[in-house]
Simulated assay, not measured.
Amino acid sequence: MPELPEVETVRRTLNELVGGKRIERVTVSLPRIIQRPAEPEAFEAALAGHTIQSVERRGKFLRILLDGLVLVSHLRMEGRYGVFRQDEPVELHTHVRFRFDDGTELRYKDVRQFGTMHLFAPGDDLTQAPLNKLGIEPLDDAFTLQAFKREVAHRTTKIKPLLLNQSYIVGLGNIYVDEALFTAGIHPEREASTLKAPEWARLYDAIRETLGRAVEAGGSSVKSYVNGQGEMGMFQHQLLVYGREEEPCTRCGDKIVKTIVGGRGTHTCPACQPLPGKRAKAKSGKAKAKPRVN
Results as ranks from 00 to 15, higher is better:
V111S: 02
G115Q: 02
M234E: 15
E199L: 02
R279S: 14
G212V: 09
H267A: 08
G253T: 03
Q53P: 00
E56Y: 12
P161A: 09
L172E: 00
R251A: 12
T27Q: 15
F114D: 01
R85D: 15
E179P: 09
K288S: 13
T157R: 13
K258N: 11
T250A: 14
R97L: 15
R112L: 07
L66H: 10
T104G: 05
S29M: 12
R12W: 10
K255G: 08
L162Y: 07
Q229G: 13
I169K: 02
T127M: 09
L145Y: 04
R11V: 01
V215K: 06
E231T: 08
A214K: 01
L65Y: 09
R25C: 11
F182M: 05
R155M: 12
V55Y: 05
A48L: 01
R244K: 15
E151M: 13
I260Q: 12
I175F: 04
E245S: 15
D125K: 00
I159E: 05
L240N: 13
P274F: 07
L195V: 07
N294Y: 13
T266S: 11
L239A: 04
Y108C: 01
M117H: 11
G263S: 09
G243N: 08
Q113R: 14
F235D: 10
L92H: 14
T156S: 15
D87M: 05
D125S: 05
E44G: 04
G212K: 07
R76I: 06
A121Q: 12
N294K: 13
L126P: 03
P37I: 06
T51Y: 06
Y176A: 00
L65G: 02
L4F: 08
R80L: 14
Q86R: 12
T144C: 11
L203M: 03
P188V: 06
V83I: 11
P122V: 10
S73T: 10
L181A: 02
A214E: 02
K21W: 10
G171F: 04
V7C: 04
T13L: 09
C249R: 02
E189N: 10
L30I: 12
G265Y: 09
L30S: 10
N15Q: 12
L17Y: 04
H187W: 07
V83S: 06
P31S: 07
L164V: 05
A217Q: 08
Q113I: 07
L92F: 11
D67V: 10
I52F: 10
K286P: 01
V83G: 03
G219E: 05
P37E: 06
G49L: 03
R99C: 10
Q236R: 08
A280C: 00
R251P: 09
A147M: 11
E56M: 13
G171H: 01
Y225T: 02
R264D: 00
R22P: 11
G82A: 13
V72E: 07
M1H: 14
C272A: 04
G243C: 05
